[in-house]
Design a protein around this nucleic acid. Structure first.
Lengths: 240, 240
DNA sequence: TATTTCTGTCATATTTCTGTCATATTGGGG
DNA sequence: CCCCAATATGACAGAAATATGACAGAAATA
């Protein structure tokens, strides 16, 4: 189903970076992976290009002279017209700070330099897939549980489940990030947003509430505690 | 704990180029930068050397008589055994075509001639660092045992295994440092961190717990006692 | 505004982990 | 083959991490 030669319009990717060498490198990698590439060398041009061409995804350098990538990111996210365009930030700084700030401001992924063309392409694809799925608002199913983003509703074996807003977002986060462990800190960042200052134990409590809510027919077993590391949502129920 | 003077095996770099002068030049630059260098003057020899010596990185000339660099690259990437070895392509042609084809076929970087030895070394290092980082995230398999760092999960023959935090770190240490004996002191340093003051016998106990945990289907045999010296994790099970 | 629901925090209960010790077992040199 | 030192094992109590229930203020809803 994926390898089918199908008349799929190429995705348009906008690359925003002040260094020509990096633009070239990215552009080559993406073009050879079958994307349509647009280029912009500063935030102003980028903004214009985004408005004009409505790219499907933007690769945005963190550090640029003048308006920085972060500022542009914020501007884009503030405007309804552009808020939904996924952004991947590129940065040389491996600092946590920038990561958090970037995710907080609404970046969809974050690639530290240096990275391989392969990694780049695969992450671009990953983001596009995710966005595509979210745009489709496809319900996610696991076991008997059905999570329907469009209807903002969760049911198990047909029975509708009542979730508080935070529990809903938490479940959504887990469903879209299965099979890997997230620390309490990360969960706070992703589910609550990066600029909250909350006790990490708060996560425990919400985990508990979520588990309780979906405990029908043992679905709470999907939410797994990884002692010393955090929590994991996994389809393979482990026997801890 | 990282800056410790440790016996770090040198990275092996294979240089593939038909011109002796270039081989010499590259080899000199890399050796003086502390790498072990292997040489091959054509694609056939290179392929054999790669199979035999499993180099950590390959510098591959684009243009060679007979099988070209690009063909070799494709062949390497097609075979699982060699697909993960990072390749840096060297080329005189600044043509877009070759660049695209190279990146497309899975080269990890691309250095146009002429280049300075310093640039070469720094790009080699960059690629190795990156690969190292990516490798940290990838599941490690030994026998039926699968160690998944991202999922923070260990399974044997599909069955999830429960490990306490310290056992998990211990196993991770062993998996990333196989085939070598470590004293109890060294293990304490690496797994517990350099500034703990613990009885060395504690290591024995955790070794035992780890063995017990992974003893399913005899996987505990990988953890070997070396009397008078310490412990070793080895893929080749010996029957001492 | 009254009412209901939701949230974050706390105190407490429970579970799991860890380092140590006492004792058993093992391996090798003499 | 015996003895000694090194290693393995089982048990245990304190420590650490997580789960739970309760509650009061905040936020949403009526």
């Amino acid at each position: 189903m994926n390898d089918k030669v199908e008349i799929m319009p190429k995705h348009r990717i906008l690359i925003v970076d002040d260094e020509a060498a990096i633009r070239d490198m990215l552009s080559l990698a993406l073009e050879s992976a079958g994307f349509n590439v647009l280029l912009a060398e500063n935030a102003q041009l980028a903004h214009a290009a985004i408005i004009d061409h409505q790219p499907d995804l933007v690769l945005l350098d963190w550090m640029m002279p003048g308006t920085t990538g972060l500022e542009l990111l914020r501007r884009l996210k503030r405007d309804d017209l552009t808020a939904k365009i996924p952004i991947i930030m590129l940065t040389a700084k491996a600092e946590e700070d920038s990561k958090i700030a970037g995710l907080d401001a609404g970046a969809d992924d974050y690639i530290p330099k240096p990275f391989s063309p392969r990694e780049l392409v695969s992450r671009v694809n990953a983001v596009l897939r995710r966005i595509g799925r979210e745009a489709l608002q496809e319900p996610i199913t696991i076991g008997e549980l059905v999570f329907d983003p469009l209807g903002h509703r969760v049911s198990i074996a047909g029975e509708s489940i009542n979730l508080a807003p935070t529990e809903f977002r938490l479940l959504q986060f887990f469903l879209t990030h299965q099979e890997r462990v997230y620390s309490r800190g990360q969960i706070l960042d992703y589910v609550w947003g990066g600029n909250v200052y909350l006790d990490e134990r708060t996560v425990d409590v919400h985990i508990r509430r979520l588990r309780k809510a979906i405990s029908v027919a043992g679905h709470d077993n999907y939410v797994q505690t990884v002692r010393g590391a955090g929590y994991r949502f996994s389809g393979q129920i482990s026997n801890n």
